[in-house]
Amino acid sequence: MDVAPQEPILEIKKKIQHFLNVPINSQTLTVFDWELIDGLDLSDYPLISDATIIHLSTKSTQTPPPKTKITVKFSARKIEIDVDKTTDTLRSLKEKIHIVDGTSIKRMALFFNGSEMEDDFRSLGEYGIEEGSEIMVFMKMAMSRATDHPPMRRVGLVVQTSMSLMNESRIPMEMNDTSRVDELRQLLVERGTVPADEYIFIHKQRIMREDCSLRWHGVENADFTYVFKGNVSRGF
């Protein structure tokens, strides 16, 4: 079978389905005992070259394992995914998110209970994930070839609202690090997350200036920003 060096693994599985009538979700492709992952390209596996043999195995029919439904939250949307917390790993969860939502596996950073999930081969159960757990997805910045004057970057932050506003909740958001705090406030109002009013934003126990950017305040990926009703002059 002829394939391009940059061809996605998923496209290769589609060709196999066309030629051999094997469903994509039943295929497992391996090279030198390495499984080829749907969200990656052929070029991500440097050992593959012309005339390389790729092994195909199919999943046997068996009683499906019990599923656990979790919520995956992005900055402006969320999806629900069924997982097996005993056998699914962080890597397989990323694959499922890619298949359902199309999000790039290479750019995903997943957070649970405020901490990044980094061990691809650790089971979801080992992370403490249960029925109804919420996973937050932040997008890593794509690599840039520019060496000087780098472009603004996207940061994923968690906005924690208080009971004095509407309902206490955590809202994952993505913004440019050059965005000002007043732009963050306006975005929350436009989305209906908070009513139109005056607010104080706090990052790392410091009151944020509305006319200054997230970068100026040192906001990084997965940082928490707390919102309280009021202003600096009259307190909250």
Rank of each mutant, 00 (worst) to 15 (best):
residue 180 R to N: 09
residue 138 F to P: 00
residue 66 P to Y: 11
residue 105 I to S: 08
residue 26 S to N: 08
residue 176 N to D: 14
residue 230 G to V: 00
residue 158 V to G: 03
residue 93 L to Y: 01
residue 229 K to I: 00
residue 147 T to Y: 06
residue 203 H to W: 15
residue 203 H to C: 09
residue 207 I to E: 02
residue 181 V to L: 07
residue 35 E to M: 13
residue 190 E to W: 04
residue 107 R to V: 09
residue 31 V to G: 04
residue 103 T to M: 14
residue 118 E to V: 09
residue 44 D to T: 07
residue 142 A to Y: 11
residue 201 F to R: 06
residue 147 T to M: 03
residue 184 L to P: 01
residue 13 K to H: 11
residue 13 K to G: 06
residue 185 R to P: 02
residue 173 M to T: 06
residue 154 R to W: 13
residue 200 I to G: 02
residue 191 R to H: 11
residue 187 L to W: 08
residue 83 V to S: 07
residue 58 T to E: 15
residue 137 V to T: 05
residue 177 D to Q: 10
residue 175 M to T: 00
residue 205 Q to R: 06
residue 104 S to R: 05
residue 35 E to A: 09
residue 83 V to E: 11
residue 128 G to V: 01
residue 122 R to N: 06
residue 102 G to D: 07
residue 104 S to L: 09
residue 190 E to N: 07
residue 133 S to H: 05
residue 21 N to P: 09
residue 170 R to Y: 03
residue 193 T to A: 15
residue 197 D to W: 11
residue 21 N to E: 15
residue 157 L to F: 14
residue 54 I to Q: 08
residue 229 K to M: 04
residue 32 F to M: 10
residue 221 N to K: 08
residue 187 L to M: 10
residue 22 V to S: 05
residue 193 T to D: 12
residue 132 G to D: 02
residue 183 E to H: 11
residue 25 N to C: 09
residue 187 L to T: 09
residue 25 N to F: 11
residue 60 S to W: 07
residue 122 R to Q: 14
residue 35 E to S: 05
residue 165 L to C: 00
residue 138 F to V: 01
residue 98 H to T: 09
residue 204 K to M: 06
residue 55 H to F: 09
residue 154 R to P: 01
residue 12 I to T: 12
residue 195 P to E: 07
residue 165 L to G: 00
residue 161 T to N: 02
residue 160 Q to T: 00
residue 218 G to Q: 11
residue 1 M to R: 10
residue 55 H to P: 02
residue 40 L to T: 10
residue 125 G to Y: 02
residue 185 R to D: 04
residue 65 P to K: 04
residue 234 R to M: 04
residue 182 D to G: 03
residue 236 F to I: 00
residue 169 S to C: 03
residue 30 T to I: 14
residue 208 M to N: 04
residue 204 K to E: 07
residue 202 I to K: 02
residue 42 L to Q: 03
residue 79 I to A: 08
residue 223 D to H: 15
residue 77 R to L: 10
residue 148 D to Q: 09
residue 44 D to W: 06
residue 32 F to N: 12
residue 191 R to M: 15
residue 161 T to L: 06
residue 13 K to R: 14
residue 92 S to T: 13
residue 124 L to V: 03
residue 60 S to N: 13
residue 117 M to Q: 08
residue 197 D to T: 05
residue 7 E to S: 10
residue 17 Q to G: 01
residue 133 S to G: 04
residue 199 Y to T: 02
residue 134 E to L: 01
residue 89 T to C: 14
residue 28 T to F: 11
residue 209 R to F: 15
residue 117 M to E: 05
residue 18 H to A: 13
residue 210 E to G: 08
residue 107 R to W: 04
residue 179 S to H: 13
residue 211 D to A: 13
residue 5 P to A: 12
residue 94 K to F: 03
residue 226 Y to G: 00
residue 8 P to R: 14
residue 124 L to F: 08
residue 66 P to V: 10
residue 94 K to H: 04
residue 100 V to Y: 12
residue 26 S to D: 14
residue 36 L to V: 13
residue 222 A to I: 01
residue 146 A to L: 08
residue 200 I to P: 01
residue 171 I to V: 11
residue 219 V to M: 06
residue 2 D to A: 01
residue 40 L to Q: 13
residue 132 G to K: 08
residue 69 K to V: 12
residue 160 Q to W: 00
residue 155 V to N: 03
residue 14 K to H: 08
residue 186 Q to N: 12
residue 114 G to D: 01
residue 156 G to A: 02
residue 202 I to D: 01
residue 224 F to R: 08
residue 38 D to F: 03
residue 78 K to Q: 12
residue 179 S to K: 11
